[in-house]
Design a protein around this nucleic acid. Structure first.
Length: 189
DNA sequence: CGGCTGATTGCCT
DNA sequence: GGCAATCAGCCGA
């Protein structure tokens, strides 16, 4: 699961004429992970997570935002990787119309911004991202070298803050700025 | 520039 | 009924 997350850095998400190269993702480990939507078992909302890998899990949150996950791991295991941020590499004109006033660096800088930029909503829940014929699919991109991959705690979760299951590309300006639980400096205790 | 908060729907207990 | 894998805008410094 963590290896899949790491491999997704640099991959390119394609939806219609817009494409985004991923710079930040976050792993969720299915039923035994208290921060996972699958923790309390299968429900109508999260049922895609319990299906085969390679499919998209789109959910609605905070009354106004969509976020997208890639289902990974074994069928039924319900592991998933939250796609958090990336750089727009195609369709900049389309995105500029969708996000008037935003600067390119911020187009997909955060999970909800990423879905807005790509035009993703619940209609894409469950699509097979491994097929180039799907409305949304994922292509391999230029590999990110190991020395540029950084790991840290997940964002916005109230439980299991200790597991470093978020990974991102070091020094990439499109990585999301929201890191509420990451102390910038470690004071000696 | 960094920190805080209101917005607003749907899901789960 | 409570709260969420967030974001934009506003505040003060």
């Amino acid at each position: 699961m963590l290896d899949v997350a790491r491999e997704l850095l640099g991959a390119v998400v394609v939806c219609a004429d817009v494409a985004v190269r991923l710079s930040e993702v976050e792993a969720y480990a299915g039923g035994r992970d208290p921060a996972s939507h699958a923790f309390r078992g299968k429900t109508p909302r999260n049922e895609v997570m319990f299906g085969p890998p390679g499919h998209l899990y789109v959910y609605f949150t905070y009354g106004m935002h969509f976020c997208m996950n890639l289902v990974v791991g074994r069928d039924g295991h319900a592991s998933a990787v939250l796609l958090r941020a990336g750089a727009v590499v195609a369709g900049v004109e389309t995105v500029a119309q969708r996000r008037p006033g935003a600067v390119p660096r911020d187009f997909a800088r955060g999970p909800a911004r990423l879905t807005t930029t790509l035009g993703v909503d619940r209609r894409l829940n469950g699509v097979d991202v491994t097929s180039a014929r799907s409305a949304l699919h994922v292509r391999r991109g230029a590999a990110v070298p190991d020395e540029l991959v950084r790991w840290g705690p997940r964002v916005g979760v109230s439980t299991a803050q200790e597991v470093p299951w978020r990974c991102w590309v070091d020094a990439d300006p499109t990585v999301s700025p929201y890191r509420p639980h990451v102390p910038k400096k470690r004071r000696h205790v």
